[in-house]
Design a protein around this nucleic acid. Structure first.
Lengths: 343, 343
DNA sequence: CTCCTCTACGAAAGCGCTTACGTAAGCGTT
DNA sequence: AACGCTTACGTAAGCGCTTTCGTAGAGGAG
């Protein structure tokens, strides 16, 4: 019977080139033990038939995969999409494919997604995005990740500690300190921090850095209001409305990510507050649009794409005896959204 | 021999629950023909063992996959990341995983990526992003896609015609016409179009719409300069520099996507040109940040996430006798970046 | 010429699952 | 009681590869 309408299999290539399926397999996957002439004949036949190996069969037989899994909070968010971009580019160079899932910042969905990646037998799992301060929230994730790692899976995370695996960690705290010092240096004293939920370690770390700077400047960090809202543009808008109501004399807003900062800018503009004339605003992350906003956003640059790529590099390496940590420096980028404090 | 350090297999679950492997399979995958009591026993055992099915084995045996492939030009670009977001969310609801690749707008890389998705035996392929006007560039892609479709694969595209498969098509031309009419309605006559490469069908279609409006207004469309540059923020900046040099009396810029429009805004600001006071600017797409820019960007809204979701829905459906086409309306969103023409 | 060592290749055993097919038991009909 | 039909389950044949092991043949040493 002729197999119509189906992709050719290895055995078809083998027949076409007059060798056994074993030899064909070796020739195509580059395993030694095949003479050059035969190997070339096989490759030729494969080309003519338009043969593409069935990766499922390959993985099943060999027990390994070229697929790597990437878990992000929300792919539509530029912070994550830039990380993803770095991962995808490097993965393509290595001939690896990437499975992405996003979790909507829901810890349960996150665990769920990791499970599904494990089921897919991906070769490595990359997890991007903040962890949770509360260890009990983090526990199921930790469990799942450990089990996978013990079974031989590779895991790397970006911007997340406490998971006991290789990690790429941005200098959130020093970065927070740097912006805050910048703001203080401009003479601001009536400052407000606009922040995502403090349950996120990223938020907590950045805030800690801000407090460091405040204390170093001889201020009481507890005197600076921290307005909490969703870690999104809408959250930024919301916080500014609260700020205008409750702390009308504020001269500087330190937002703990660019998304919120953008929301802040937007709301201040609609409220008729000039930036940086009346109020200065800073962000964190330096997403691509930050420089194209008006005014250009003063922020802390994190090389997101590179962070993604580095996480992948870690995951592709042999596991070390203990978890590796790579620090990524955060660099203050001063633009036009911050200026001297109004008198 | 005890299998240490490996994930449990179906047969382990079968033994643990005292049934055959066939019954266990049926119970876990929900295939009818198993009594409720036995099914529950099996599920219980699976849970206790922490069993997760090996999807490679499953795909190999069943000949189908729950994985769907998504090809985009650049995941870091908000247009695509928002589409991806729609796809990921809907896919998760259907218990599907998504493999994403980005191609850097390189037609060859695109074909390459589709091939690799085919090798992965994904159940469906989604392709987002503009096609090419030049049919010869599009041909290899068309070939690959057709072969996959004939072998039973499902394909859907968003924003791309000519591929002979199910498609979700934004109203680029009517959208282009709508913005242009808006600009004309504000009294602008010295207009410049800032455009990505005309080789992209998306660009060509939007431009066609703009020309429709110009002609309808009794103008000669050929009198309106079309500045071509990369379809990115940097491209927008570049075009504005050319515009300021070559067409200094321009009062309105119609950018053919938001990314370029953002670059235009940015460059105009650095060049000290007020928007919309001296020059009005419009975009296309309505990416999330568009509303938070200063001034808020007048643009044409495309429901990107929804478009992604709809493409997935099409791909998940049974194929029709002929390729389906879903039009997605484009809606003009007027914000602050456009105003009456200066006298 | 015999013996041994390589090298190049083939045969066949899985990898972990799905599913077509076979069968035994239960139940209603006549 | 004999018959068929349905339901619930087991047996076993793959899915398309990789990889271990075995072997034939070439070539070198003695």
């Amino acid at each position: 019977m002729v197999r119509t309408n189906r992709s050719p299999r290895l055995i078809d290539v083998a027949h076409a080139s007059g060798v056994s399926i074993a030899t064909a397999s070796r020739a195509l996957s580059g395993t030694p033990g095949v003479s050059d002439s035969v190997a070339e004949k096989v490759r030729q036949a494969a080309r003519e038939l338009g043969y593409v190996a069935n990766l499922h069969a390959r993985s099943l037989a060999s027990g390994s995969t070229a697929t790597i899994g990437l878990v992000v909070h929300e792919i539509g968010d530029p912070y994550f999409s830039e990380i993803a971009s770095g991962v995808l580019s490097l993965a393509a160079e290595h001939g690896r494919t990437v499975q992405i899932c996003h979790t909507g910042r829901d810890p349960e969905a996150e665990v769920e997604q990791v499970r599904s990646l494990v089921a897919n037998r991906v070769g490595a799992i990359l997890i991007a995005g903040s962890g949770f301060v509360d260890a009990s929230v983090e526990a199921p994730m930790r469990f799942e990740v450990q089990r996978y790692a013990e079974a031989g899976g590779r895991v790397a995370v970006v911007g997340r500690h406490h998971l006991g695996v290789d990690s790429v960690l941005p200098d959130n705290r020093p970065g927070g300190r740097a912006v805050a010092e910048h703001i203080l240096g401009l003479g601001h004293r009536r400052i407000v921090v606009v922040s995502g939920t403090l349950e996120l370690t990223t938020v907590a770390d950045r805030l800690e850095g801000v407090r460091d700077a405040l204390e170093a400047a001889g201020l009481d960090a507890d005197d600076v209001p921290v307005l909490e809202g969703p870690f999104t543009r809408e959250g930024g808008r919301e916080c500014i409305r609260r700020m205008l109501a409750d702390h009308p004399r504020t001269t500087a807003v330190i937002a703990l990510n660019d998304d919120m900062a953008i929301g802040c800018l937007s709301q201040l503009r609609s409220s008729g507050v000039s930036v940086p004339g009346q109020v200065s605003v800073s962000g964190f992350d330096d997403v691509a649009v930050a420089q194209d906003l008006s005014p250009g956003l003063t922020t802390v640059r994190l090389p997101m794409a590179e962070m993604g790529a580095r996480a992948l590099t870690l995951a592709l390496k042999e596991p070390g005896a203990r978890a590796r940590r790579q620090r990524v420096p955060a660099e203050l980028v001063v633009r036009d959204s911050t200026g001297p404090a109004a008198r």
